[in-house]
Design a protein around this nucleic acid. Structure first.
Ligand code: MN
Ligand code: MN
Ligand code: MN
Ligand code: MN
Lengths: 220, 220
DNA sequence: AAAATTATTTAGTTTTGTCTAAATAATTTT
DNA sequence: AAAATTATTTAGACAAAACTAAATAATTTT
């Protein structure tokens, strides 16, 4: 597998993420995601097409090729292993890891990453609950549902938090919700879409729709 | 302290290393050290001068300013901490650490490095025996002498190996010489400048001038 | 179906870091 | 002290990655 520049890697990773949702990715979406200009996206897309990492016809959207997908998984593996390292070994808080991992992910020594993986004990998920691809690019694909769509009375476990800001971390810490927390929705209120939830045998409490939207759970 | 590009950092580090030896650094020396062309060096020197990291008059040599020296120590700190991490935690061998650290050193989060330092237990020297600057840029300055200049009969401890190749590591492992080994020169042979040395109470053995040149020791 | 709006691409610049070839300065040899 | 050699700088080009402004294509509104 060839080596790509940090810039190319950031584009590849963004396309991978966006195409999970929409199937195909547009110029404007990418420009917005990467905080760059549409014209810059077009330039880079031509380059990545030439390198056979993606397919696209002018004015249609982009899609990674099989090879492009493999490259993306490699970058995501590096990113999430570093995040795990920062949180677990260096005691970074949850909201601090992403920014640093955004740089570390571009150091591409295969040996470094495989040894790091081993040192960390082959973790399956990063500090936000996102799965870490293994050395062959395989990763866990457990069915996760948004907390807002969990039916009342169904026990579930928090598996993933999307938003990685300091603000959401503060709130989650206050509410004592972390990845792995087992909870149940008691009631859904139509007016403001807030949820009443219960953790274990503790008294139930309320969380806002905005918060619930960012929490994914798995059925148990 | 501002942020510098990987390229600028590699130049700064190289100047720092070379000026330790010669006091001042020339265009050709730098070009050779960095495997680049003299014209590229001149370009970069203008840039670093503009940023007040070095002093130079055309056709004289270069010297880092005080600020330039501080920046250099920061890069060296990152480089050596990563080398220590790779060797100690990830079990890289001695000859493999430098190349990877050459990339990792350019990830410049201060918090990352200070936490890494703490995680590693504030190590004083990297795997080759070179001192690691602390968070304030201070580092050990123990007097080291080349093994070829150690007088016969004076006990000393191996503190440092300059050459970092796989080849020298193989030889040192075979001879059971590592950093920290206590030894004594028994005899120096004029003909080929080979040395007879003894480790502890074991039988004495011979090492070549080429090998001895790359080993530094400290008196005990 | 035209017109208006929105999305995307193209054209032309800019910055950073590199290179080759040519010019000039400094040093060494004769 | 010239001449020859070596070191350094300058001039001009190039590639990567970004940007702005203008052109064009696609979509939506009227
Ligand atoms: Mn992340
Ligand atoms: Mn990144
Ligand atoms: Mn090194
Ligand atoms: Mn480097």
């Amino acid at each position: 597998m060839l080596n790509y520049s940090a810039s190319e890697e950031n584009y590849i990773k963004a396309i991978y993420r966006l195409q999970r949702q929409d199937g195909t990715v547009t110029t404007n979406e990418l420009a917005h995601e990467l905080k760059t200009k549409p014209a810059s996206v077009t330039d880079m897309m031509k380059k990545l097409k030439l390198k056979k990492l993606l397919r696209y016809q002018p004015y249609q959207g982009f899609r990674l090729t099989q090879e492009g997908g493999k490259v993306a998984l490699g970058i995501i593996r590096r990113h999430r292993l570093w995040e795990y390292f920062l949180a677990e070994k260096l005691k970074f808080t949850w909201d601090e890891v992403h920014e640093v991992a955004e740089d570390l992910e571009h150091v591409s020594s295969k040996k470094l990453i495989d040894k790091l993986d081993e040192f960390l004990g082959f973790p399956r998920v990063d500090p936000h609950g996102d799965p870490i691809p293994d050395a062959h690019g395989r990763m866990e694909t457990s069915k996760k549902i948004i907390l807002t769509e969990l039916p009342a009375g169904t026990p579930a476990v928090v598996s993933n938090v999307i938003n990685q800001s300091t603000a959401i971390l503060e709130l989650l810490e206050h509410k004592k919700i972390i990845i792995g927390t087992r909870l149940e929705v008691k009631k859904k209120f139509e007016f403001d879409e807030s949820l009443e939830i219960r953790i274990g045998r503790q008294p139930a409490f309320t969380i806002s729709h905005q918060l619930a939207e960012n929490i994914f759970v798995q059925l148990v």
